[in-house]
Design a protein around this nucleic acid. Structure first.
Length: 331
DNA sequence: GGCCCTCTTTAGGGCCTT
């Protein structure tokens, strides 16, 4: 395989593709000092979300801000015209765009797309990968996949471009006892206006469909995915009596990281995401142990690992696994 | 919970995820 062919089939060209601008602007805001999640409440009294009692007559947009600059937050009141359930669902989560090279969306003026996730192919036309690669991360109430629940979910399309990120808090319906790990407090998620995973599922499925290249599978990548993230997601889907789509495959970067060797031939002393970030000199993308910053770091780590191991996208697909069904999922 | 490593395999400790 020639060098040019090899590079056309792997991930090393990605950094040049993270630059297009979002055009759909609904909620525009700038950065503030606090590290908490800010919530905008939109009055949708005329909505017709008949069977979504939890959402009731209102919906939320969750926006995270981590800058040190003091700025004002602005929101524009939603139209009170009748809205379809579909449109309301899209206001719950945030889809945003990477605005400049190596610049996470967190540090950019925010835009929230509430008009639906449109299929974006302009960037993809330049990259003929055999799969859509989505890097993701979750935050949970603890380590036990059986007892604990997801409280935050973030996705980042490796190709970048319009609406290439997706993130939301999730109502776990149980107390959050590990705030020390991620900074997410119980009152931030255990509220009727934060979507449960059941409410999130249709939105998530729609978002992934919007990023999927026709006829090609979706590869979802996470660090320690096989033992942690994927079992959590599988259990949440099972609680909803739903199956993970057949065209979703998962890739775990942890065993890949264990293959890496130092210049002296020794293996890396640690293969945690933080250690890999430091190993490759990747800058922090926000507070560690929050879903989107960790997903952003993993995007960079994945590219470095595939370069070091000389792995093509096709080879990554060969390493993908399907989630195992858990027959002992508590309600 | 499962994988990896070693002072191992008739085992146990550390890592990795929050």
């Amino acid at each position: 395989m020639s060098l040019s062919v090899f590079f056309s089939r792997n991930l090393h060209q990605l950094l040049n593709n993270l630059g297009s601008n979002s055009t759909i602007k609904f909620l525009k805001l700038q950065y503030c000092t606090c590290k908490q999640v800010h919530v905008w409440r939109f009055n949708l009294q005329n909505s017709v979300l008949a069977n979504e009692a939890r959402l009731g007559l209102q919906s939320l947009v969750f926006v995270r801000a981590w800058s040190n600059k003091t700025t004002k937050l602005k929101s524009r009141k939603l139209s009170t015209n009748r809205a379809t359930p579909c449109k309301i669902e899209k206001r719950i989560v945030r889809a945003s765009t990477i605005n400049s090279k190596n610049q996470p969306a967190f540090f950019q003026p925010k835009t929230v797309n509430c008009h639906g996730f449109q299929q974006s192919t302009s960037v993809r036309k330049a990259i003929d990968w055999p799969a859509t690669i989505l890097v993701f991360d979750i935050e949970t109430t603890g380590f036990s996949r059986r007892k604990e629940r997801i409280i935050e979910f973030a996705l980042r399309d490796l190709i970048g471009g319009k609406d290439s990120t997706f993130e939301t808090l999730v109502n776990p319906e149980i107390p959050v006892s590990n705030t020390h790990a991620h900074g997410i407090r119980s009152y931030m998620v255990n509220r009727t206006d934060v979507p449960t995973f059941r409410e999130l599922v249709p939105i998530l499925l729609q978002y992934v469909r919007s990023r999927r290249m026709p006829g090609k599978p979706v590869l979802l990548v996470a660090h320690n995915a096989e033992q942690f993230d994927v079992p959590f997601i599988t259990n949440e889907f099972q609680r909803c009596s739903m199956d993970i789509p057949e065209d979703w495959g998962f890739l775990d970067t942890l065993p890949l990281a264990r293959r890496l060797v130092m210049p002296d031939g020794s293996k890396l002393p640690s293969v945690s995401l933080e250690s890999l970030r430091e190993h490759y000199g990747i800058p922090l993308a926000g507070p560690a142990h929050r879903a989107m910053p960790d997903a952003t770091v993993l995007c960079n780590v994945l590219q470095r690992i595939t370069f070091d191991l000389k792995l093509t996208v096709s080879q990554l697909l060969d390493l993908a696994f399907r989630p195992k069904r858990n027959f002992d999922v508590p309600p």
